[in-house]
Structures are given as structure tokens and as C-alpha cells.
């Protein structure tokens, strides 16, 4: 479980996160939703330690991440996997080298063992036989899948996904969503997904938190997100004419 306790973060005069407390459960997909600029990416970057929080604490299974030494943080980071919006694959490396990279850095596995793990991860994301391709040769959906394969190569306890569907067509988005959901349940990972894609919210949102203007506005599941009377959340969900018509 990941817990953010009363965290605040400002950039200059602008307070982006205001005293947020939230828990993300193990073995389910936890979604952070909100408008662009609401602070959800900053929240995720605070959770993974890319930004230091100004106030509050972040706990990974009761381990206080915000007050750890650099070495302790490094140990925790090896338990984290992250899927970035653009994939963040290393351009100079092939698919195989990208996935093998964390294994080479943090394990003492032989080259055969590493290769076996790489092939397993690639198979898991349905990308067998693409070992020797470079990121520039991959489509948007393939990049996301390779990034997932890299994120799970070290068998992480925590998986963070920053807008995994951005730039993808609805069909590929569905594939990525299902893949993340399957991996979460299969390996009992604590998964946190940052999204404003309503399909993802309804399909895989087992726990949803809605961030508005840097504040935690609403929490629930995909079962009750459509039934809520929260005005800001309704404005967000039913922002388009199509969704409003569907609601009626």
C-alpha cells in the first residue's frame, strides 16, 4: 500500500498540492483523475520522489519515503516501476537492451537469465520477436508496451503510470488498460494510474481519486463515479455533449 499523508507542494507562490491525504491499495488499479493542470502529475511525481514534498509524508508499506536517506530511497526505487507518458525508452538502446537495463544495473543475473527475463516480459506484453528493434521503429502502442515490459522487469511492488493512453487510439488504449490491470492482479502490485481518459476510469478504475485545483475532491470506485452528485466531478466526467447525452 502507498499512503500520502497531508502532502503539500508549491512552485514559487503557486500551491499545486494542498494538504492531500490518500491511500492506494495493493493488488488493484488506483486511478488519479482530474483536469489538466489540477496537480495530478505533480502528485504522482511527489509519490515517486521526482519532486520533494514541502509538507507531509509518503509511505510505501509503512516505510516513510519522504524522510529516508538517499541510499534507502534508492533501495525503494528498485521496487518501483514507472510508465511515462511518452514511454521514456532510451533511444540509443534496442527494445531488448531497454528491458535488460534495470536487470544489468541491479541484479547479478547471467546474460542468459537476463535474456530469459526479457523474453518473458516481452511475451507478457505480446511483443515477442521485437528484441532488436529501436524505439524509433516502434508505434505509439508498442512503445507503451515496451515501457510496461521494462517497468515490470524487476518485478516491482509498485507501478506508476502517467497517462498511459495519451496519444493512442481507443482500441490500443483498451489493450494497454487491460494489460496494466492484468499485471496488477497477477503480480499483486500497487498500481497508481494518472489519467483523464474516461474509458480507463470506467473499465479499470477499482479505486478513483479526483483531484481538483490541487485538492482531493472525491474518492470512490468506477461503480459510483457516474452516480455522484459532486458538481466538479460531474463537470469533469460529463464535459462533452456525447457523455451528457449518454447520461440522459
Amino acid at each position: 500500500m502507498i499512503e500520502a499523508a497531508n502532502i503539500s507542494k508549491s512552485f514559487g507562490e503557486k500551491e499545486v498540492l494542498k494538504n492531500i491525504s490518500v491511500q492506494f491499495e495493493k493488488g488493484i488499479t488506483n486511478l488519479i483523475i482530474g483536469r489538466s493542470g489540477s496537480g495530478k502529475t505533480v502528485l504522482m511525481k511527489c509519490l515517486v520522489g521526482l519532486f520533494n514534498v514541502d509538507k507531509g509524508n509518503i509511505f510505501f508499506d509503512d516505510r516513510d519515503f519522504s524522510n529516508m536517506s538517499i541510499k534507502e530511497k534508492r533501495d525503494i526505487r528498485q521496487e518501483l516501476g514507472m510508465l511515462f507518458q511518452g514511454g521514456a525508452l532510451f533511444d540509443s538502446m534496442t527494445v531488448e537492451q531497454n528491458i535488460m537495463f534495470p536487470l544489468s544495473m541491479f541484479t547479478k543475473k547471467s546474460i542468459e537469465e537476463k535474456l530469459e527475463r526479457v523474453n518473458f516480459c516481452l511475451k507478457r506484453v505480446n511483443l515477442e520477436n521485437s528484441n532488436k528493434l529501436f524505439p524509433s521503429e516502434l508505434s505509439g502502442g508498442m512503445i507503451k508496451r515496451v515501457a510496461i515490459a521494462r517497468a515490470i522487469s524487476l518485478q516491482p511492488k509498485y507501478l506508476f503510470c502517467d497517462e498511459p493512453n495519451s496519444g493512442l487510439d481507443p482500441m490500443t488504449s483498451g489493450v494497454i488498460d487491460n494489460l496494466i490491470s492484468e499485471i496488477t492482479h497477477e503480480y499483486q502490485i500497487t498500481t497508481v494510474i494518472n489519467t483523464h481518459d474516461m474509458n480507463s476510469v470506467l473499465e479499470i478504475g477499482e479505486k478513483i481519486v479526483f483531484i481538483n485545483n490541487g485538492e482531493l475532491w472525491w474518492g470512490g470506485t468506477n461503480q459510483n463515479v457516474l452516480k455522484t452528485n459532486n458538481k466538479e466531478l460531474n463537470d469533469f466526467i460529463f464535459a462533452t455533449e456525447l457523455t451528457r447525452r449518454l447520461k440522459k
Binding site: 520522489g49 533501495d75 518501483l80 514507472m82 507518458q85 521514456a88 532510451f90 533511444d91
Partner: peptide, 17 residues
């Protein structure tokens, strides 16, 4: 610089590198 703007440096940092 390209690695920075395409979040590759963030990816390294998250890996604990």
C-alpha cells in the same frame, strides 16, 4: 537535453540510478 525533455532522465532516477 533530449533525454531530459523526453523524461529518460526521470526514468533513470526512478530506477534508483
Amino acid at each position: 537535453g533530449t533525454m531530459r525533455v523526453t523524461e529518460q532522465i526521470d526514468a533513470l532516477k526512478i530506477m534508483g540510478i
